[in-house]
Design a protein around this nucleic acid. Structure first.
Lengths: 343, 343
DNA sequence: TTGACTTTTAAAAACGTTTCAATAGACTCC
DNA sequence: GGAGTCTATTGAAACGTTTTTAAAAGTCAA
């Protein structure tokens, strides 16, 4: 391995000078700098980040901590996009990105959880809590107690070094509902799941609010899927139609789904029943997962700024690390209604 | 930070002994080991991986090097799954996983490319070359020249420290074609793209082989999409139908698509033309990307063992690092025909 | 020439581990 | 009882940087 000493010898200076050049410190005479740079180039030298890390007590790395029981990750189709955003921000600031996915059995000890921080592998982490699990609260508390720097996605949090990056779930749901109302719909149903989850509660509240605001409070209609899968969405849709049949209630003319996967499941049922989307019934999803545009008809949906969330989360963490902590501990990024053809 | 010295003091031994305990070396007397373990637990000590890395000249980390011009990664929907597999293997062997996504402008200098290796951040990398780019060959050569340890996905390679993990693309395409032939189809078309790519060529050859083997060589019919998008698939499908019209040739009764995204695009066109899948025309995709099951009708497709590929690639690299290099430099993993409803 | 500056470079001490040679102690064997 | 063999433990050097402190070199005025 070529070290800073080799460069120093080659350039006829001391290691300290080389170090100064590397960090662009203005204390070196221009021609010395030039000589050093040439030596670096010639020897193809890369400073050891490991040694730097040891000396500076900082790894210049952030982790993506994914707590997701599903081994065939990601359960959440948006995580890949979050990761892309994180990567972008990390690269820009010359940080590395470490993927930390503790074995998903759920029973995670504090030791395992904190290992990457304590062992100096990462300076901070973005935490994504996928699915619904009782242990999530526990994990966040543990991180807080350990006084470790992190940002959590789509979840409110308080803590000395805790940041929170969310998307405007309520606003997004409200906007989608208003769009449907604007299109003349009055019977608008919401599809959620028994497995509740903070972001979904916000979406539901946005829907409720829009309905009330339009004087359609009486038409609020909610059907719950047992889970967050596509077949769950189908079940919820079927239940909804049956309930209408039973209660002699008119079918909804529009559906707002808690997320795109549910929406897709619902659409299958509708086609099965010979109901045409959007002619007979409009469907709007939530997330804008990659596949939304491929659905037939292409899915109108509320786009979550996943890329942006990852990026901003990392930027907040890096600012904190570099001694300029953002005053805003909670960031809410706007969603966007992407109108395609399903609603 | 609590160091090995603190633990040593607490347990009344020397740092070397603590180190021996940490690494489970059998030289320590059981009761000493016990005392040390208790001290570790009590002080909540985690050895610094940075210091370990420096001393042992190895980071115990593998990188996922994604060369993909698309900033809204991943272009390849299978990369997330590959990553999951990599993560699994890494975790099992107590390695870390570093995501390395050089800024995607394509013109990547050797310096940038090798930085993570040279700076000791990673011991090896899994390389994924997304899309089609002339510079890919260049990158692989550069890695080889640098004598750096890596594994590349879906691409043949030779090199002192180069491994290759592929899926059985040709076999998969052959099996899919045979399935269609077995179902009585004779007019089977293949959808590929002008942007060729090693794996696709293999798929095409598998299709050709199956057709010839069944004496259907005359029926080989190929239509190329300008790119690998869904709309490209639609274009290829439209062109195909028009060509049949023009040449007075019967429509194909089955389509084998070069990948799932193309298949989805083709299915849109078929529905548009009032052709029913699979009643009028069967469609089989390739990849089994996450959304294949959500397509309507659910897509029959050739499943690529993405998770497994990531996992095996990392395992090969780790074996090499640990001094037990796999003799097989090229690993071919089986594909699997997932029969759903489209074909 | 000297002294007081300023600019540039050098030397040495960390950072937290691992490893190797060395030591001390206990045991065996003639 | 002393030499020889084990076994368990230790001390010190190394890994490649950064940083602080000190020194050298250069500049200039008196």
């Amino acid at each position: 391995m070529t070290t800073i000493w080799d460069v120093a010898r080659e350039a006829g200076v001391s290691p300290s000078t080389v170090s100064n050049v590397i960090h662009g410190r203005p204390v070196v005479k221009p021609d010395t700098r030039q000589r050093v740079l040439e030596a670096i180039e010639k020897l193809n030298f890369h400073p050891s980040r490991v040694a730097q890390g040891l000396r500076q007590q900082s790894s210049r790395a952030v982790g993506f901590l994914v707590l997701d029981p599903n081994p065939r990750w990601p359960t959440d189709p948006l995580h890949a996009e979050v990761l892309a955003g994180m990567s972008e921000a990390a690269t820009e600031h010359d940080y590395s990105l470490l993927l930390d996915r503790p074995s998903g059995n759920g029973c995670l000890t504090a030791r395992e959880l904190l290992q990457p921080f304590r062992s100096g592998q990462i300076d901070a982490a973005v935490v994504a809590l996928a699915g619904t699990s009782a242990s999530h609260q526990h994990v966040l508390e543990e991180l807080n107690r350990a006084d470790v720097l992190f940002a959590v996605l789509e979840r409110e949090i308080e803590g000395r070094c805790a940041y929170s990056v969310m998307s405007a779930n309520a606003d997004g749901a409200r906007a989608a509902t208003q769009k449907l109302i604007g299109d003349g719909h009055e019977q608008i149903a919401f599809l959620d799941s028994e497995q509740m989850w903070p972001a979904i509660e916000l979406r539901l509240s946005g829907y409720r609010r829009a309905m009330h605001e339009a004087g359609l409070g009486d038409h609020i209609l909610i059907s719950s899927s047992p889970d967050w899968t596509s077949t769950g969405g189908a079940t919820a849709m079927r239940n909804l139609l049956e309930r209408c049949d039973r209660e002699g209630r008119p079918y909804p003319t529009a559906i707002l789904a808690g997320n795109d996967v549910l929406a897709v499941g619902a659409m299958h049922v509708l086609r099965e029943r010979g109901l045409c989307v959007p002619a007979n019934i409009a469907v709007i999803g939530f997330d804008d997962f990659e596949f939304a545009r491929y659905v037939d008809p292409p899915l109108t949906t509320v786009r979550l700024p996943a890329h942006e969330m990852g990026k901003r989360a990392v930027e907040m963490l890096i600012r904190h690390i570099e001694g300029d902590p953002p005053t805003q501990r909670k960031l809410v990024l706007p969603t966007e209604l992407v109108v395609r053809q399903s609603g």
